[in-house]
Amino acid sequence: MIKSLGFILFVILFSSAASAQGIRQIKLNDLQQLIAAKSERIQVINFWATWCAPCVKEIPLFEKLKLDNTGVEVTLVSMDFDLDPNPAKVERFVTRKNLKSTVVILAETDPNAWIDKIDKEWSGALPATLIINTQTGKRRLVQRELHEGDLEKLINEVRN
């Protein structure tokens, strides 16, 4: 028992240490793969930026979702590079908030060329959240700040 607790502690320490080391920068096709790849888990993809106040405010909802819900995969996609290509800023934020969710930075320019490839309905406004059942293709796009309970409701909608 103590041994397994020790192991869990090790995993937690290791994973938070790893997250501070450097955030993966991804391209559009990585993101498209994440959206398209068939997974047992519901994909919850949040588009945010460190400068976006409503985004920062809703991040705890995604963190809580990750901790509570094993059937869900949370990815926080930072759009910071569109305005300021400085990974250190995003890294500092992730470390300071001690984020446990997967955080990636979308390293692309000219958003007009790819916003529609993520979701045709998306205006490009932040925050935006995409919830996908990759097995059925059912998806929901929310283009506003989320509140307590919203995510659970949306996840149920795509699950059934």
């Binding site: 976006c52 958003p111 916003i115 932040l126 925050p127």
Partner: peptide, 11 residues
């Protein structure tokens, strides 16, 4: 018509 990343209007 174009799209861009930006701040959503605070409704």
């Amino acid at each position: 018509k174009t799209k861009a990343i930006g701040c959503g209007i605070k409704w």
